[in-house]
Nucleic acid binder design. Structure first.
Length: 469
DNA sequence: CTGGGGATGGGGCCC
DNA sequence: AGGGCCCCATCCCCA
């Protein structure tokens, strides 16, 4: 009869033995050629660690008497070194320089546990998910049923060349896609087809994930890169960052595995709130060029599609497009609206938002939808929102004869008179209700006041500068 | 319940 | 490579 401790010790020792055999090229029955470098490995380990090898070995290499040879040219030898080291040790050497390529390789090799660790690494580096992490920490006193505590402590590699380890059998089986497996990106379990089903989430989250709902294919039929389920980090979580943890804080647990204490991680989260943009830039700067994956997988994608997203199946022609695309995964929203604070992934989206919401850019009466000109309508300001009303609609509400006030600080060339809503909260423009929905509650209460005053305000293009946090 | 419209987000691609 | 434009899909709210 084995205790869990005995079993764990036995498994660790067995893995060490296998790793020793690999390094001595003993009983290796699979050769992997990467960038001209030959790696020796055991089919059993490859089969157990990688969905790609599971497919490859089960379908193509039935002759156990002959060594199998696999050639990869879609990632570097260094990257595969990290991958195979992980296969034989459960420890993943991640750094800001290799995390993207390791994740791409893991995507290709269908190693979802490695992908999860890489995601967590990136997330931690960018610190774009404080709420979820706080939730994670808060659970450390009473862990979720599908989240082993040692995973919390060991599975996340922080900045530098730390190792991310997945130790326990439950961790590995979970990350491999067992029912109820813990998804490090949130409370949604990783299902057998690697999908944290967006349909199980609020629609507000699904809205930003719609482009990344990877096909839920059975493992035996899909292309390796289709195995990756991109997981969007929610907009509301994009608030803080975590700096690299200095080496002197690096500790080891009783089993000799590198780890951080949950307490220390909490401290790091609280104490760090800068360099997020730098982290993102470092990430982008080290983004590898993954070429030829489309052809390798036999897909019908154009050969000109050279850059593959490490989070999902999307491929683009330009690195810049991939950088832009990655924001939908990282949750990075570097462009805030100067008027309302709402953040966007692109500057053009901020401008579009500003024009439509704060600038009354559309020459259409908000109420009757008729086209209005400067002569036939006026701009109405409701909080930070501005829209146009025709003279008829204004007259209907008795606001056609209000005095015009001119802003003293109006230093642009905008001469549009604007009606500002303020005052009596019992009155409210019915057609402006819809627009208030998206405003903060405190602001709404203020904006529901109704007392029209016509004055001139800045209606020009504001110089909106991206602000990185 | 449904269709319409506004707001938003993302991809492709040109400059 | 970044900025910007165009287009389209989706979500949400309202009538």
């Amino acid at each position: 009869m084995f205790s869990k401790m005995d079993l764990s010790f036995y498994q660790s020792r067995l893995l060490l033995q296998l790793d020793e055999q690999r390094r001595r090229d003993l009983f290796c029955d699979c050769h992997i050629l990467v960038e001209g470098k030959m790696f020796m490995a055991h089919r059993n380990v490859l089969f157990a660690s990688s969905g790609y090898f599971k497919m490859f070995l089960s379908q193509s290499c039935r002759d156990v008497g002959q060594p199998s040879t696999v050639t990869f040219d879609v990632f570097s030898a260094d990257t595969f070194t990290a991958i195979i080291d992980y296969m034989y040790s459960g420890r993943l050497p991640l750094s800001g320089q290799n995390v993207i390529e390791v994740m791409s390789a893991a995507s290709y090799l269908q190693m979802t546990d490695v992908i999860s660790v890489c995601k967590e690494f990136i997330k931690s580096s960018l610190d774009i998910n404080e709420k979820e992490r706080d939730n994670l920490f808060s659970l450390s006193g009473g862990e979720p049923a599908h989240q082993p505590r040692d995973y919390v402590q060991n599975n996340v590699a922080w900045g530098g060349n730390n190792c991310a380890s997945i130790r326990s059998d439950s961790d590995i089986s979970g990350c491999r896609g067992g029912a109820g497996a813990w998804n490090p990106y949130g409370p949604y379990p990783v299902t057998s087809n690697l999908s944290s089903n967006p349909c199980d989430r609020p629609t507000s989250q699904r809205a930003s994930e719609r482009h990344h709902e990877a096909p839920q294919l059975p493992i035996t039929t899909c292309c390796p890169e289709e195995r990756v389920q991109g997981h969007k980090i929610s907009e509301t979580d994009s608030t803080t960052k975590v700096n690299n943890i200095p080496d002197d804080e690096y500790i080891q647990d009783e089993a000799g595995m590198d780890c951080w204490t949950v307490t220390r991680r909490k401290e790091m989260v609280k104490s760090s709130d800068k360099n997020k943009a730098t982290k993102a830039e470092q990430l982008y700067a080290t983004m590898p060029t993954i070429m030829g994956i489309a052809e390798t997988c036999g897909k019908d994608a154009s050969s000109s599609m050279r850059f593959k997203c490490p989070f999902c199946t999307h491929m683009v022609k330009r690195k810049a497009d991939l950088k832009r695309h990655l924001r939908c995964h990282t949750g990075e929203r570097p462009y805030p609206c100067q008027a309302c604070g709402k953040r966007f992934t692109r500057l053009e989206h901020v401008r579009s938002h500003y024009r439509t919401i704060h600038e009354a850019g559309k020459p259409v009466c908000r109420r009757c939808k008729k086209h209005v000109t400067e002569e036939t309508g006026q701009v109405v300001q409701d909080g930070t929102r501005r829209f146009r009303l025709c003279t008829d609609c204004l007259a209907e509400f008795g606001v056609d004869s209000f005095p015009i006030e001119v802003d003293d600080d109006d230093d642009d060339d905008d001469d549009d008179p604007t009606i500002v809503l303020s005052g009596d909260e019992d009155k409210e423009l019915p057609w402006s209700q819809h627009d208030r929905v998206q405003q903060p509650k405190a602001k709404l209460e203020k904006d529901t006041l109704y007392n029209l005053i016509i004055h001139e305000v800045d209606d020009s293009d504001e110089d909106i500068k991206p602000v990185l946090y």
